[in-house]
Measured scan of single mutants.
Amino acid sequence: KELVLALYDYQEKSPREVTMKKGDILTLLNSTNKDWWKVEVADRQGFVPAAYVKKL
């Protein structure tokens, strides 16, 4: 499975999103959308801005 690194803190703004902290390592589930990537963090799945994460 592919992992991404959170480059910035992100606070979810809708139930479809997830909160992450800078430095978090997240499991990447889907990166087909260039703006929003689906990730899993702490047993929750949701979207984060693609610009806020980097593939490892």
Rank of each mutant, 00 (worst) to 15 (best):
N33H: 11
L26P: 00
L26R: 01
L26I: 08
K1H: 13
L56A: 05
K13T: 12
G23K: 02
Y8D: 08
K38V: 15
G46N: 00
K21A: 09
T19V: 03
I25G: 00
D43G: 15
Q11S: 12
L28R: 01
E2I: 14
K34F: 08
L29Q: 04
D9P: 06
V4E: 00
D43F: 09
E2G: 10
S31G: 13
E2W: 11
L29C: 08
G23T: 02
L5E: 11
F47I: 07
E17P: 04
S31A: 13
E12H: 09
L26E: 00
W36L: 03
N30W: 06
A42G: 15
L7H: 03
T27R: 12
L3W: 14
K1L: 14
N33S: 11
A6H: 00
L29E: 03
E12Q: 13
T27F: 12
L3D: 04
G23Y: 05
A42T: 10
K54M: 15
Y8G: 06
V18M: 12
M20T: 04
L5C: 10
F47W: 15
L3S: 08
T32E: 15
D35W: 15
E17Y: 06
E40C: 12
V53M: 07
K38L: 15
A51L: 12
P49N: 03
E2A: 11
L56K: 04
I25V: 11
G46W: 04
L5V: 15
D9Q: 03
Y52K: 09
W37T: 03
V48F: 02
L28I: 05
V48R: 00
E40Q: 15
D43K: 09
F47H: 05
D9G: 06
G46P: 00
E12R: 12
A6P: 00
K38H: 11
L3N: 06
N30L: 10
K22Y: 05
K55Q: 09
A50M: 04
S14K: 07
K55R: 15
N33L: 11
K1W: 13
K22D: 02
K38Q: 14
E40R: 09
L5N: 02
R44T: 07
L28Q: 00
E2C: 14
Y52T: 09
P15Y: 09
L56C: 15
A50D: 02
K55P: 11
K38P: 01
S14Y: 07
E40F: 06
R44H: 07
A51P: 09
V4M: 05
W37R: 01
Q11N: 14
P15F: 09
D24T: 08
E12F: 06
D24F: 05
D24K: 03
N30G: 07
A6K: 00
V41F: 12
K21F: 10
V53I: 08
M20P: 00
L3H: 09
L7A: 05
L5S: 05
V4Y: 07
Q11G: 07
Y8P: 00
E17M: 06
Y10A: 00
K22I: 06
L7V: 07
R16G: 14
V53L: 15
D35I: 14
K22P: 03
D43Q: 10
S31Q: 09
G46A: 03
N30C: 13
D9L: 03
K1R: 14
A51S: 14
L56N: 03
L7W: 04
A51E: 11
L29N: 03
P15W: 08
V48A: 03
Q45G: 07
E40M: 10
D9N: 08
D43C: 13
R16K: 12
L56V: 12
K34D: 12
L3F: 15
E12V: 06
K34V: 12
L3Q: 10
R16W: 15
D24P: 00
R16V: 11
Y10C: 02
E2R: 11
L56W: 09
R44Q: 07
L29K: 05
Y8T: 08
S31E: 15
L7F: 04
T32N: 13
V18H: 03
L26S: 02
L29T: 05
K13L: 09
R44K: 12
L28C: 09
M20D: 01
V48M: 02
T19I: 02
L28D: 01
A42Y: 13
E17D: 06
N33W: 07
K55V: 13
W37M: 04
K22S: 07
Y10W: 11
N33R: 10
N30Y: 07
L28T: 02
D35F: 14
Q11Y: 15
Q11P: 06
S31C: 12
D43T: 09
K38A: 09
L5D: 01
S14W: 06
S31Y: 08
V18S: 02
K13D: 06
G23R: 02
W36H: 03
G46C: 04
G46Y: 05
P15Q: 09
K38G: 05
R16A: 12
E12I: 06
V39S: 00
E2T: 13
E12S: 15
W37G: 00
K21W: 10
D43M: 10
L5H: 04
Y10G: 00
K1A: 11
K34L: 11
L5K: 08
Y8I: 09
V41S: 15
D9W: 04
L7K: 05
W37F: 07
L28W: 01
L3T: 08
K22C: 08
L56I: 15
W36K: 02
G46K: 02
G23H: 05
K13V: 08
W36Y: 08
V4S: 03
K21M: 10
V41T: 15
V53E: 02
Y10Q: 01
K1I: 12
G46E: 01
V39M: 02
T19L: 03
L7R: 05
W37Q: 00
W37L: 04
K21T: 09
F47S: 04
V39H: 00
L26G: 10
T32K: 12
A42Q: 13
Y52P: 02
N30F: 06
E2K: 09
E2M: 13
T32H: 10
K13Q: 15
L7M: 09
V53W: 01
K21Q: 10
K54Q: 13
